[in-house]
Write a protein that binds this DNA or RNA. Structure first.
Lengths: 144, 144
DNA sequence: GTGAATGCAAACTCTTTGCATGACT
DNA sequence: AGTCATGCAAAGAGTTTGCATTCAC
């Protein structure tokens, strides 16, 4: 994951963007928090660390990272957008959302990826990305 | 689709909810607009028809329909939630979103459903629902 | 008649934007 | 020096909530 932050900084620089410390702090926070982060969570982490960055700048940084395809934005229906680092290798995962407690966890499934790939070549859209969300109850909530 | 509105009204009544005309109008609007509707789109349709219903009541009705699993809520990243009727038979589809013009269209794919089903039984969540979004360019935007 | 549903307006949350200040190259 | 980036505060959009009124049963 730390390898992602290097990748991201390099990509930003290569695209001609300045490497200011607020921006770098956001990149680090995304790298550290990893899968499924909220703008507010990034802000909270940076405040705790004493590197507070204005929320507006966090959104601007995330927006930029998204345009450079360094993060992917998605929503699971809590009103807040979630972001996660895009791995340079292309590996990626999808999400399980617990409808009781809101927990978001990740899974990978090659068979699912293959099905989506085959499907993508069949539809009339030029498909560039996809995401899958499974909803249900996490083991902890289910036990009750 | 009209069969859905009957199903929905019956389910509402059966669950002990009053059948007021604003609520019925929302059900009809969802049935008519079908796949992928926004609260504002419902409101606009009802205004055009002269059956205007307050936005708050539309949200309350949608919320209720969702709790009764008569509609499913999802978001494709435009800030507004989308809703669609849940067919009693269980047939369902997923969505293609054009990243250029925002158009949302639907597709079905049995192979994808099978992959998700197999996957669902393997994860440690009790999976109750799923959704898949493919993002890319629609044929019209791609032509440019 | 009684409790549920509605409508309006105010409140909230998340996100974006305008603008003056400050920082990289 | 010249931009680009930041921070703050205000503006926006979507959604929710409080409360008095209306309506279904």
């Amino acid at each position: 994951m730390s390898q992602w932050s290097g990748h991201a900084r390099q990509a930003l620089e290569g695209a001609g963007y300045r490497s200011s410390s607020p921006r770098a702090a956001v990149v680090d926070a995304v790298a550290e928090l990893g899968c499924s982060v909220t703008a507010r969570e990034i802000s909270d982490l940076l405040v705790r660390r004493g590197q507070a960055v204005g929320l507006a700048s966090i959104y601007r940084a995330l927006d930029l990272l998204e345009r450079l395809r360094l993060v992917q934005r998605f929503e699971v229906g809590e009103g807040a957008a979630r972001y996660e680092p895009v791995q340079p290798g292309g590996e990626h995962h999808h999400h399980l959302v617990c409808e009781s407690c809101g927990e978001v966890s990740a899974f990978e499934d090659p068979a699912l990826e293959r099905a989506i790939e085959r499907l993508s070549s069949r539809v009339d859209y030029a498909v560039g990305a996809h995401d899958v969300t499974l909803r249900g109850e996490c083991p902890a909530c289910h036990a009750r």
